[in-house]
Simulated assay, not measured.
Amino acid sequence: MGFRELSDDMDALVLDGLGDMATVGGREIAGFFSAPWLQPRMGRINTALREPQFEIRVVDAAGIEPGQLVVVDLAKQDGGGQYDLVKLEPDGSGWVALLLRAKA
């Protein structure tokens, strides 16, 4: 088994155990949600996170486009709710950040 296959298996295990679920354009996808109002603090320095994001694997990003509705399946206090997909940002490591804007 090659590195890419091992990496895909590891990603799937991490998503199963730690991932969040969201519906993107009507399709359920596992990923990692993060929001600026919930940002982690490192000592007294805030992280550089500015907009809500949902990180997904590149293989799950097929057919996803800006303007689609993203519904994050979390409690409201954890950032769950409806968002507009503003932009997709691949990071070059097999993951894509979906940059979100809260629905008005």
Rank of each mutant, 00 (worst) to 15 (best):
M1C: 06
G2L: 12
G2R: 05
E5M: 06
E5H: 04
S7C: 10
S7D: 02
D9L: 12
L13I: 11
L15F: 05
L15M: 11
D16C: 03
G19T: 12
G19L: 05
D20R: 02
M21P: 02
M21K: 15
M21H: 12
A22E: 00
T23E: 15
V24K: 11
G25K: 04
G26A: 01
R27E: 03
R27H: 01
I29L: 11
A30Y: 13
F32Y: 11
F33T: 11
P36A: 05
P36C: 02
Q39L: 11
R41A: 12
G43Q: 10
I45C: 04
I45K: 15
N46K: 10
T47H: 08
A48H: 10
E55C: 12
E55Y: 00
R57P: 04
R57I: 02
V58G: 06
V59M: 08
V59Y: 07
G63Q: 00
G63P: 08
I64G: 02
V70L: 00
V71W: 08
V71M: 14
V72N: 00
V72D: 07
D73Q: 14
L74A: 11
L74P: 08
G80I: 03
G81K: 07
L85P: 09
E89Q: 01
E89P: 01
D91C: 04
G92A: 03
S93E: 15
S93Q: 11
V96C: 01
L98D: 07
L100T: 14
R101E: 11
A104W: 05
